[in-house]
Amino acid sequence: MPSIVRTFAWLEGLGWTTALRESPYGYPLIETSHVACIVVFAGLVIMMDLRLVGLAFTNAPLAQIQRRLFPWQMATFVPSTATGILLFCVDPLRYYRNVFFLAKLVLLVLAGLNALAFHLKTYRRADRWDEDSQVTALARFAGAASLLLWSATIISSRLIPNNWFK
């Protein structure tokens, strides 16, 4: 048995993961909290993306919107991640080979890299966004990529219970 499977089997066998899995409320409540945090987190990310691609909130300066949304995105990202990790721990053997779960992980990494690149490269020049057309094109690209990646992440997450490709 590969050691990663052994680790997951050990995780699944722990007292607290077993208790959460077998409780009628444990898993549903963690999952619902996960979804409640995600809709706010991803919802605000998508609002920022719509502004970046120029589809909404175009009358408000980009830098200002970003500065105010960012703390809330982070404040909801932390509990989203914590509840997500908890959900995995409760049933690791069910998830680790699930195509949609793996797709979600890959998409999350790509969305994270896109956000990181945007913050490190483009966001530093935020004050020039409204005048420099090249920066605007980069910002638009980052926004469009983020929209696609987060949409795909949400769709693959919701499909996890339907493991069509075993």
């Binding site: 995600i38 809709v39 706010v40 919802g43 605000l44 609002m47 693959s156 919701r158 499909l159």
Partner: peptide, 21 residues
């Protein structure tokens, strides 16, 4: 049905984002 569920939660996310902002 599952694909409709997935698109539903995506639409809900965008909707909630616009509400929260």
């Amino acid at each position: 049905f599952p694909l409709t569920q997935a698109l539903h939660i995506l639409a809900v996310t965008v909707f909630v984002g616009a509400v929260v902002i």
